[in-house]
């Protein structure tokens, strides 16, 4: 039983066999170190210390968020190259970079639009990369929701009297529901014919 499982996933199984607990703890230690550094940078940025130091170095204070962002990216790359878990570094790095990039924007609307952009980018990545057709549909739902955040944010700040953005969001919700149901029905029909949901195996339309 164990052998058959191992042959299903050769690389991961070998990793676990070689490194075992040691690998896991090493990856998580690097993530914790990176998270601590990211929190430190974010707090320094919010407190204004980062801006003061940058002013001392001869640059303008308005560049503080760019420099904080660059520091986060460089530290993330270093942590990954030392063997930190890539997913953990990416999650903490995205949150810290998101706070650093949006906290000092003068418009509150920009924060919401940026969050929409982040979720949209994650959805694009998932849609392009997913092996499972249903996970691809989930990523599409994520992207639709990111667009909805933008609609509602615009309704709140640009058109507060008539809230037309919310109406558009309702129509988007309707179309998304229809899309999800039809998409999943297509996936089920494909599964019935090919007994898999692996995107690599769906090559009937390939020429």
């Amino acid at each position: 039983m164990k052998d058959s499982k191992a042959s299903c996933r050769p690389e991961e199984a070998r990793d676990e066999a070689d490194g075992g607990l040691n690998m896991i703890s090493r990856a998580s230690i690097h993530v914790v170190a990176y998270a601590t550094a990211a929190v430190a940078i974010t707090v320094l940025f919010l407190g204004g210390q980062l801006g003061q130091w940058i002013e001392l170095a001869g640059l303008s204070v308005s560049r503080a968020d760019q420099i904080g962002f660059l520091a986060l990216v460089v530290m993330g790359l270093v942590s990954c190259s030392f063997g930190g878990s890539r997913l953990g570094v990416m999650i903490t790095g995205t949150i810290a970079a998101f706070i650093v990039l949006t906290a000092h924007q003068e418009l509150a609307m920009v924060r919401y639009l940026s969050l929409g952009a982040v979720l949209f980018a994650i959805g694009i990545y998932g849609m392009t990369v997913s092996r499972n057709a249903i996970r691809m549909l989930m990523s599409i739902e994520l992207m639709i929701n990111a667009a909805n955040i933008n609609f509602v944010a615009f309704a709140h700040w640009v058109d507060p009297l008539h809230i037309r953005g919310q109406l558009f969001a309702i129509f988007v919700l309707t179309v998304a529901a229809a899309e999800a149901v039809v998409g999943l029905a297509i996936v089920l029909a494909l599964y019935r014919n090919m007994s898999t949901v692996n995107m690599e195996k769906f090559n009937l339309l390939k020429w």
């Binding site: 690389e11 990545y125 995107m199």
Partner: peptide, 30 residues
């Protein structure tokens, strides 16, 4: 639950061939 997702539980969820291009595109979009 109808499509026997357990079959692919252990596999890497990503298609390795697409990862570089996809991360480039998503970072570019953001």
């Amino acid at each position: 639950m109808l499509t026997n997702a357990r079959q692919e539980t252990g596999m890497n969820p990503a298609l390795p061939a697409n990862v570089g291009l996809a991360s480039f595109v998503s970072v570019l979009v953001f």
